[in-house]
Each structure stands twice: as C-alpha cells, then as structure tokens.
Amino acid sequence: MRHGAFLELAAGAALDDLDSSEADRLSDHLGACPPCRRSVTALADVAGLMALAAPRRRPPATLKHDVLAALARGVPGQARPR
C-alpha cells in the first residue's frame, strides 16, 4: 500500500469515518511510521479547527446552569424539557 494511501486513511480517521478494515490497516501502519503518527495528530487538529467554520450561534444563557447541574448530578440530562 502506497504511503499516500495511509495519509488518506489518517484523514478518514480524523473525520471518524473509517471502516474496521481501514482502521486496522492504519493502526498497523502507525506503529512503524512516526511521520504518519504526526499526520494523524495534525489532521485531528485540522478537523478541530474546521469546526470553527460553523456559523456563529449563541447558546442560551440557561445552558451553563444546565451543564453545571448535570456535572453535579454526574449524568447528562436533557437540557430542557422538549
């Protein structure tokens, strides 16, 4: 398998979109390839930055209270009754 193909798999991993055989192939390769391991990290960061391209939205002021209450309970609940 050519090296570029592993980079494509690394991109698929960053997008959480690998099938199990692809995930196995990538995992086997990463053990022996530090440059690809660095690529996996870099692509995860690219995916993280891409999230910032979503249109701006302000969460409701009540959400902070709901989050802190959920942490106090130790379990997530629905933010508000639907």
Partner: peptide
Amino acid sequence: AGPLYALAYQVTGGDRFAQDVVQEVFV
C-alpha cells in the same frame, strides 16, 4: 461553549439537540 454549540447546531439543526450535545460533551 459557543463554538461547541455552533458546531452541534450545524450538525443537528436544532437548538435543543445542540444543547444536549454540549451538555454531554462537558459531562
């Protein structure tokens, strides 16, 4: 919270769902 909510809203298309996602992330 702002950018996480914005991302979750974009994916789910709904305020309530986005709030649930943000809450689940922090938990």
